[in-house]
Simulated assay, not measured.
Amino acid sequence: MKRMKRMKPLFAAKRFVDEYYPHCQAAVLAGSVVRGEDTPTSDLDIVIFDNQIEEAYRESRIEYGWPIEVFVHSLTSYKTYFRSDAERARPSLPRMVAEGIVLEDSGILSNIKNEAAELLHEGPALWSEQIVTIKRYMLTDALGDLIGTQNEAEALFIANTLAEAIHEFVLRTNGQWIGASKWIVRALKEYDEDFADRFVTAFDAFYKTGNREGIIRLTDDVLAPFGGRLFEGYSIGK
Rank of each mutant, 00 (worst) to 15 (best):
K79L: 14
K79W: 08
T80L: 13
T80M: 10
Y81M: 05
R83K: 14
D85M: 02
D85Q: 03
A86W: 11
A86Y: 07
A86H: 07
R90F: 12
P91S: 10
P91H: 00
P94V: 02
P94S: 04
R95Q: 14
R95Y: 07
M96N: 01
M96K: 02
V97E: 01
G100S: 05
G100K: 03
G100L: 03
G100T: 04
L103T: 00
E104A: 14
E104G: 01
D105P: 00
D105G: 07
S106Q: 13
G107S: 08
G107D: 08
I108W: 02
I108L: 07
I108K: 06
I108S: 08
L109H: 02
S110D: 10
S110K: 11
N111S: 14
N111V: 10
N111H: 08
I112E: 01
N114L: 11
N114I: 07
E115A: 05
E115W: 00
A116K: 01
A117Y: 02
A117W: 05
L119V: 07
L120H: 05
H121T: 12
H121P: 00
E122H: 05
G123D: 05
G123P: 04
G123L: 02
G123R: 08
P124L: 06
P124S: 09
L126T: 13
L126W: 13
W127H: 08
W127L: 15
S128G: 15
E129P: 03
Q130C: 13
Q130G: 11
V132I: 15
V132T: 09
T133L: 12
I134C: 05
K135P: 01
Y137S: 05
Y137I: 07
Y137G: 00
M138K: 14
M138F: 13
M138G: 04
M138E: 15
M138D: 14
M138I: 14
T140L: 08
D141T: 09
A142M: 13
L143D: 00
G144D: 14
D145A: 11
D145T: 13
L146V: 09
I147R: 15
I147F: 01
T149R: 03
Q150R: 14
N151H: 08
N151E: 09
E152C: 04
E152F: 10
E154D: 14
A155M: 07
A155Y: 06
L156M: 15
F157G: 12
F157W: 14
F157L: 12
A159M: 08
A159I: 03
T161E: 08
T161H: 05
L162V: 09
A163Y: 01
A163W: 00
